[in-house]
Simulated scan of single mutants.
Amino acid sequence: MHEDGKLDYLELPGGDLPATKAFYGEAFGWKFIDYGPEYASFNEGLDGGFDAQADGVRTPLPVLFARDLEAMQARVEAAGGAIVRPIFAFPGGRRFHFRDPAGNELAVWSET
């Protein structure tokens, strides 16, 4: 069940996606759902995915959930977060990215 403001997903850089999937499949028995040639999701204790086009981001991207994405973006901004990627659509919903005061990039997503 998705809860506002809780960690809900972990997106990792995928690099050579076929090689990454082969590694995790062989080493840990992970299974994947492909969303085109550049993205594969997993559900292995925590939902997540590998993004072969991680926009230069080479660190994991923690993703939080929000029922009302616009309201959560306003809360993030009011608390001092810097929006680095405004709300956009992706397969499965919409999300935005922000940096916290320590410089960490996170995302918040919603199904609608």
Rank of each mutant, 00 (worst) to 15 (best):
D55G: 07
G36H: 05
G92L: 02
A54I: 01
R67G: 13
A82W: 01
G93F: 04
G36Q: 06
Y35G: 02
K6L: 12
E11R: 11
I87A: 12
A82I: 08
M72H: 03
A22C: 00
A107F: 09
A66V: 03
P62E: 08
V76T: 14
R95V: 00
L64M: 14
D100K: 06
G93D: 06
T112Q: 13
G80N: 01
F23P: 00
P37I: 05
A82P: 00
N104G: 10
F65L: 08
G29H: 00
G103S: 09
A102V: 10
A71C: 07
R94L: 02
L12S: 07
G92I: 02
F42K: 09
Q53C: 06
F32N: 03
G36P: 04
V76I: 15
P13E: 12
A27V: 07
F96N: 13
E3S: 15
L10V: 13
R67H: 13
A71Q: 13
F23S: 00
W30Q: 05
R95W: 04
F28C: 09
L106R: 10
L7W: 05
E111Q: 12
M72K: 10
F98Q: 03
G15A: 10
G92H: 03
R75Y: 08
L46I: 14
R95L: 10
A102L: 12
I87W: 11
S110R: 07
F65K: 10
N43F: 06
R67F: 08
A78F: 07
R99L: 13
P37Y: 04
D8E: 12
G25Q: 14
R67K: 15
D51E: 09
Y35R: 02
A107Y: 11
D16F: 07
A40E: 04
G103I: 06
G14L: 04
D68V: 07
F28Y: 13
L46R: 03
A71L: 10
K31A: 15
R99P: 03
L12V: 13
K6A: 15
I87C: 12
L17M: 07
D68H: 11
A107L: 11
V76W: 10
A89W: 04
G5A: 15
L61A: 08
D100Y: 06
A19K: 14
P37H: 05
G80Q: 00
G92Y: 02
R75M: 11
L17H: 05
T59S: 14
A89K: 13
R67Y: 08
P18E: 14
I33P: 00
I33R: 04
V76K: 11
F96P: 10
P60A: 15
F28L: 15
M1F: 08
F28E: 07
E44L: 00
K21W: 01
F88M: 11
L61E: 09
A66Y: 02
H97Y: 13
A27F: 02
W109H: 11
H97V: 08
A27D: 01
W30T: 03
L69G: 10
R58W: 01
D55T: 04
V84P: 02
G5K: 15
P62R: 09
R67P: 05
E11P: 05
A52F: 03
Y35T: 01
A102E: 15
G92T: 03
S110W: 08
N104K: 10
P13L: 12
